[in-house]
């Protein structure tokens, strides 16, 4: 059992506050992705869990044991680094077996475990090579194999795929997900790539300026963003926003149209909808098409509603010309509302 509890973790570098009071519980065998733009504190949080960075305050517990005062080697973790950190002076075999040798395991046990994880990562034929003779993707596999060979309680990954080219990244993404699910370890995975996060995670923690804005399943983060930041960070293109004014109880007026909305006494709200949740219709928001981008699978149209730019994804058979007027109906159950003051979602 390796449940991870992060309690009130804060970290400052001089005057810069990298993390403010982070609280997060990661269940045993859960695949948690920390997602955020660079500088949001996600790597710092990971390094604090690993013991490579010391928190200014707070506690880290793994499997019911407080570990934040222990050195990295005593925490039951293994880590995969962004630049792989494969030791150049050792063969692939010795790299994977490095941690096992440090544990003073008998030779045949080391060989057994190295061969098992090498098989898992499909690098059996590289065991005698040195890191200088490997491609980036192969090095990456060695780094993951080395972490898996430790049979750790928790595996920590710091943007492990970001140095690979796009095609390889997609391939490794799926493979890594499978291997980790099979290994039954708890995993924390740091990335700035939302596609990676969505496709791999059991749960995503979206981080922004040293805070966790939302920690939820990928689909929940996508459908029900807890804050405007999440709505505009996740999704490509991101959510659309339009100002809304009250028009009676639970009624809101958006660009001349009236929608059912939350029952609050706010003077202004923001209406939000994903680009793919709009359809051309008889009645709806009236928009002027500005830019039309045929993307093959669908048609991306950037249009204008009032002062605001608004993106919609239409079927690739749709015929739209710049300057053309469109009437777009939002799918009612996909409309979300945000409070512009707190930037939080309003139900």
């Amino acid at each position: 059992m390796a449940e991870i509890q992060i309690k009130n973790i804060a970290k400052s570098f001089g005057a810069f506050q990298a993390l403010n009071d982070i609280n997060l519980t990661i269940a045993d065998q859960e695949f948690m992705v920390l997602l955020g733009a660079s500088g949001c504190g996600k790597s710092t949080l990971l390094r604090i869990i690993a013991g490579l960075e010391v928190a200014s305050s707070g506690e880290v517990w793994i499997g019911g044991k407080r570990i934040d005062h222990l050195s990295p080697k005593d925490r039951g973790i293994a880590m995969v680094f962004q630049n792989y950190a494969v030791f150049p002076h050792l063969t692939v075999f010795e790299n994977i077996g490095f941690g096992l040798r440090m544990k003073k395991l008998p030779n045949d046990e080391v060989t057994r475990r190295v061969e098992r994880v090498a098989g898992l990562m499909h690098i059996e034929m590289l065991l005698k090579r040195y890191s200088g003779e490997l491609s980036g993707g192969q090095r990456q596999r060695v780094a993951v194999a080395r972490a898996l060979a430790m049979e750790p309680d928790v595996i920590l990954m710091d943007e492990p795929l970001s140095n690979l080219d796009a095609l390889l990244r997609m391939e490794m993404r799926a493979e890594l997900k499978g291997v980790l699910a099979e290994s039954k370890t708890t995993a924390i995975y740091v990335t700035h790539d939302q596609v990676e996060a969505m496709s791999m995670a059991d749960r995503i923690s979206v981080m922004h300026q040293g805070d966790i804005v939302q920690a939820a399943s990928p689909i929940e983060v996508y459908r029900d963003p807890a804050a405007k930041f999440v709505a505009s960070f996740i999704g490509n293109p991101p959510m659309n926003f339009l100002p809304a004014k009250p028009a009676g109880p639970s009624k809101w007026q958006v660009a001349g149209q009236t929608f059912d909305g939350p029952n609050t006494d706010k003077a202004v709200l923001q209406f939000a909808i994903r680009p793919e949740d709009m359809q051309p219709a008889e009645q709806g928001l009236v928009a002027t098409a500005k830019i039309v981008e045929p993307l093959g699978a669908h048609l991306l149209v950037t249009c204008q509603i009032g002062d605001a730019l608004f993106r919609v994804i239409l079927d690739s058979d749709a015929v739209v010309k710049p300057g053309q007027s469109l009437t777009l109906a939002p799918q009612p159950d996909r409309v979300r509302w945000f409070d512009p003051d707190t930037t939080l979602a309003v139900a």
Partner: peptide, 26 residues
């Protein structure tokens, strides 16, 4: 790269053994 040392620490090395086993040979 400092990551080589950090990797060694997470793989069971102390600061000293990481130095003798990883940094020194390099």
């Amino acid at each position: 790269p400092i990551e080589l040392e950090e990797a060694a620490w997470t793989l069971g090395c102390t600061r000293l053994t990481a130095f003798t086993k990883v940094v020194l040979p390099l």
